[in-house]
Simulated scan of single mutants.
Amino acid sequence: MSPIQIEVLDPVKLPLVARLYKSYYRSGKAKKDELTIAGSVDKQMIAVVRFKSVEENRLLTGMLVVPEFRSQGLAHRLMSYCEQYVLQSGDFCFAYSELESFYQQHGFVTLGSDSLPNTLKGLFERYSQKKSLVAMKYG
C-alpha cells in the first residue's frame, strides 16, 4: 500500500466526503463551515475527521476510516497529523466508549459530562441517548 497523504480539505471537495459518509457513516454530514482533514491513498479518500465550532469551543467529530483500510494504523496517522497541525488545547470530542483509549493515546482526557461547557453538554446529552459515548478534552 502506498503511504497515506493527509491534508486539510478544500471545502470545494466536500462532495467527496459526503459520498464517503453515504457509503460508510450515514449519520455523518460534512459542512462548509467545518475544518475537514482527509487521508488518501493513491488519490482515493480513505479517512476523514472533522472539527466543528460550537460557539467558542471546537469539537472533533465524524472520524471515519474506510473499513477495508482499518487495522493498518491509518487512524493513528490521521490523529498524529491533527496533533501536530490542528488540535488545540481545549478541543473536545465525544468518543465511542470502545475508542476511549485510542483518543487517550492522542492526548485526550476523559471528562464527566458535568465538566463540559454548557453548549457542548447539551449536545453530548442528546448524542449519548442513542450511543455509548465518552466526553473527552484535548490537552
Results as ranks from 00 to 15, higher is better:
Pro3His: 02
Glu7Ser: 08
Val8Leu: 14
Asp10Arg: 12
Pro11Trp: 02
Lys13Met: 07
Leu14His: 03
Leu16Pro: 01
Tyr24Arg: 03
Tyr24Val: 09
Lys29His: 09
Ile37Gln: 02
Ile37Thr: 03
Ile37Phe: 01
Gly39Arg: 14
Gly39Lys: 10
Asp42Lys: 08
Asp42Cys: 04
Asp42Ile: 14
Lys43Gly: 05
Lys43Val: 04
Lys43Arg: 13
Met45Val: 13
Ile46Tyr: 05
Ala47Tyr: 07
Val48Gly: 04
Lys52Ser: 06
Lys52Ile: 15
Val54Ile: 15
Glu55Val: 03
Glu55Thr: 10
Glu56Gly: 04
Asn57Gln: 15
Asn57His: 15
Leu59Glu: 07
Leu60Asp: 06
Gly62Pro: 06
Leu64Ile: 12
Phe69Met: 11
Arg70Lys: 05
Arg70Asp: 01
Ala75Glu: 00
His76Gly: 00
Ser80Val: 14
Ser80His: 10
Cys82Ile: 14
Cys82Thr: 12
Glu83Asn: 11
Glu83Gln: 14
Gln84Tyr: 14
Val86Tyr: 11
Val86Asp: 02
Leu87Cys: 07
Leu87Arg: 01
Gln88Ile: 15
Phe94Ala: 03
Phe94Trp: 11
Phe94Tyr: 08
Ala95Asp: 02
Ser97Pro: 00
Glu98Trp: 07
Leu99Thr: 08
Tyr103Ala: 04
Tyr103Asn: 11
Tyr103Met: 03
Gln104Glu: 09
Gly107Ile: 15
Gly107Gln: 09
Phe108Asp: 09
Phe108Gly: 03
Leu111Cys: 11
Leu111Asn: 15
Gly112Cys: 11
Asp114Met: 10
Asp114Glu: 12
Ser115Lys: 15
Ser115Gln: 15
Pro117Phe: 00
Asn118Pro: 15
Asn118Gly: 01
Leu120Tyr: 14
Phe124Ile: 09
Arg126Gln: 07
Tyr127Gln: 13
Gln129Pro: 07
Lys131Gln: 14
Val134Cys: 03
Val134Leu: 06
Ala135Asp: 01
Met136Tyr: 04
Met136Leu: 09
Lys137Glu: 13
Tyr138His: 02
Tyr138Lys: 00
